[in-house]
Design a protein around this nucleic acid. Sequence first.
DNA 1: TCTGTCATATGCGAAATTGCATGTCATGGG
DNA 2: CCCATGACATGCAATTTCGCATATGACAGA
Lengths: 289, 289
Amino acid sequence: MGMEWDDLRTVMVLVRQGTLAAAAAQLGVSYTTVARRIARAETRMGTRLFDRLPDGYRATKAALVVAERAGRMQQEAETLDRELTQFDDDLTGPLVITSPQLLIGSHLGEVIETFLTRHPGIDLTVKATNDLLNLNRREADLAIRIQRDPHDTLIGQRLTGQKTAAFAAPALAQRIAQDPAQPLDWIGFTFWDGPPRDSLVAYPKGRIRMRFDDMVAVVGAAQAGLGVARMPMFLGRYAGLTMVPVMEPQPYADIWALSHRDIAPTARVRAFREVLIPFFRTRAGDFVG
Amino acid sequence: MGMEWDDLRTVMVLVRQGTLAAAAAQLGVSYTTVARRIARAETRMGTRLFDRLPDGYRATKAALVVAERAGRMQQEAETLDRELTQFDDDLTGPLVITSPQLLIGSHLGEVIETFLTRHPGIDLTVKATNDLLNLNRREADLAIRIQRDPHDTLIGQRLTGQKTAAFAAPALAQRIAQDPAQPLDWIGFTFWDGPPRDSLVAYPKGRIRMRFDDMVAVVGAAQAGLGVARMPMFLGRYAGLTMVPVMEPQPYADIWALSHRDIAPTARVRAFREVLIPFFRTRAGDFVG
DNA sequence: TCTGTCATATGCGAAATTGCATGTCATGGG
DNA sequence: CCCATGACATGCAATTTCGCATATGACAGA
């Protein structure tokens, strides 16, 4: 049973990545090392694992079998990684959270401020991204997400509900109020068919003037007075925009705090929730108007 | 995610073995290395894994959690080890079989002779033991076992049925035949309550004169003329003993050839069965009389 | 055709890992 | 009380492993 487990892991990563360089980057070693470990593994198993092609290493059937089993081993290792946090019930050390970018400036900054003051020993990392990080792999300990249901196997608490409304720069908002008959320029998303349906009842002349694929850009365009944009209420207010009553505020996805089952009860994550949840309770008005 | 899988394995082995030296022996490294790997693992995980006691390393709860997960990883690794044999469909290379000691001299020797002549490139190892080797861990590729049902998840084929009968050295057998009224001395096993029940009908004066815990010893005692012993028919004949008609031959556990599901279809194991099974078919008379 | 890119091979010095030898400590038997 | 035993700790030298620098080959685009 002289099989080296780390070599199995190396084979798995190379199967998934396809090239030595990519595998090496993921493993945090040089590609030279990957090549040598593969050669060693082939010797030990007595089987050819990869075809050396000009454009990379291509896995043989044997390598696929190895990768399959090693993948299961990795799942066990990831589970272990989370399980071990229960022995780390210390209010010092690392804590990683992730949140949509736009919530950080408007609200989370204040939460973080309070949290770090209360727990100065904690080394907090905030990953501001709209990507859904994989909490199973512990890419973050706690995620703040905007979604309709907490679907996963994750432990979740609803921080607040939300509504969206139409917002515009103050000057534009004032012009719209003064001259409701004028065509309404919308700032939309690339995937929109047209202006929000509700708005067309009162303002049938609405049209989409420009589209973006990113909310930050939409906000910027609205701030520049280029049109009306539909966005969550907290965001419109935070961005210094004025709500324009061209449509009724509508329910939007809730904001959730999510953690993996194994991570949720640990000390640092609990401590963060203890700041986070009351804060959102007091500021619910920002989100539902 | 910089967890070293081999370190997890080291922790697991040390948890199971309890001392550095024993763990090192199983891992095939020096105990110094084990101690250092443990220290490194503790640093990386940020948790104490063992209490250093005067009489060895005692696992903490965290180490038990590690050992549990690593155990599952090991099962995957063992499965992989078997799965990889399907890529080794060559009639050269290693083959490991195991069999009860007593079958080897009487019958298996001839099988092995034939097999090696037919496949000179195969490097055959025979583990002659009554211990049930773990075929999951690939301690052997094929096991010949005497048992009533093939219970396991193993792939099995029945080689032959068996019967037991009473045997004695020829001289003693002759005396018994001449003077049936004399008390019958039995050579028994430690766990026997008394002489075989069937024999008491015709020979109520039977008594156990000595007991052994090992079949080889029983055979030796019978050969020395110390009494009558009940044993499989093939064994009595092979040992040069004479059947004594003090009891009817009785059914006994069958002889099976067993392999793990993943190993059974491989070339070398198939080749061995192709010699083994016909041989037992032609020699069925040895076992059932 | 020439050239830049991307990918793998290989030689060599640096760094990490390992094993051996030795030292320390607790325990139990004579 | 002494000593043998079994277990862990530590210093040092040898080995293994690793990463960098460099070389080679295939391919696409100017």
